[in-house]
Design a protein around this nucleic acid. Structure first.
Lengths: 119, 119
DNA sequence: ATAACTTTGCAATACTGTTGCACGTAATTC
DNA sequence: GAATTACGTGCAACAGTATTGCAAAGTTAT
């Protein structure tokens, strides 16, 4: 099961929701996939993004991903097709927080239309 | 009711969830507050933030807030106390998206510890 | 083969958000 | 002033996602 779920994430190359992953199987229970994803997260294989679509989405980490600390790249949610893309080659800039605030993690989501949905 | 809800938001000076607002009243129904907040949003009095905590939070807009288009300031979610602060004096930087991506909106949430929870 | 452990599926539950409906109050019309 | 309309509220129900308890099925070790 883990191999299958990993395969789906690897094949799609974008962030998928629990429901979307479930759709790619015929007879696998939500909870099974949920626990599989949780295992992956615990072992830092994937990171999760809350893109504000109402469902958390999951995507594979790169080898050098530091998402245990933070998931420091932008994500892009297309408002037309609902797909979430990882903009991995766009590191987020350093943020100068006001005095007293301590940076741990960040979740930067940009919304708009993706290349597939232009025109 | 609207005055009361507005008062709560004004008094707290941070983003509150529907549930948190409900807690500040004795016998007011969730749906009433929900609809009040919706009215506020329609009239651009408040903006909403999804900080990934599982609950959308609401905060008053400034007079010059352009949150009809986007809510372009950082938000800070404290991982200890769970409070969400608006970092209104920190506008988000312009982002150079890859070819084909079209910017409409952004939601930048930083997580960490807030001044109240240091040490 | 038996025991211990893991994985899976089903069902139920939690939590947030949302809507339908009925009641009551306030404003408007005649 | 009575009838009508509009509006706000509370209750209850429902939707969607996330999560957990439990038992059956499968796997591994002894």
């Amino acid at each position: 099961m883990r191999e299958l779920v990993y395969g789906v994430l690897d094949k799609n190359r974008k962030a998928l929701s629990l429901y979307e992953i479930e759709q790619q199987f015929d007879n696998v229970d939500r909870s099974t996939i949920f626990r599989t994803l949780k295992t992956f997260q615990d072992n830092l294989l994937i990171h999760s993004v809350d893109d504000g679509s109402g469902a958390v989405k999951y995507a594979l980490c790169d080898d050098d991903c530091t998402c245990s600390l933070d998931d420091l790249h932008y994500h892009f949610l297309c408002t037309k097709c609902g797909q979430t893309h990882c903009l991995k080659n766009m590191p987020i800039p350093k943020v100068d927080l006001p005095e007293g605030f301590n940076f741990e993690n960040a979740n930067f989501v940009i919304k708009g239309t993706c290349p597939n949905c232009q025109g």
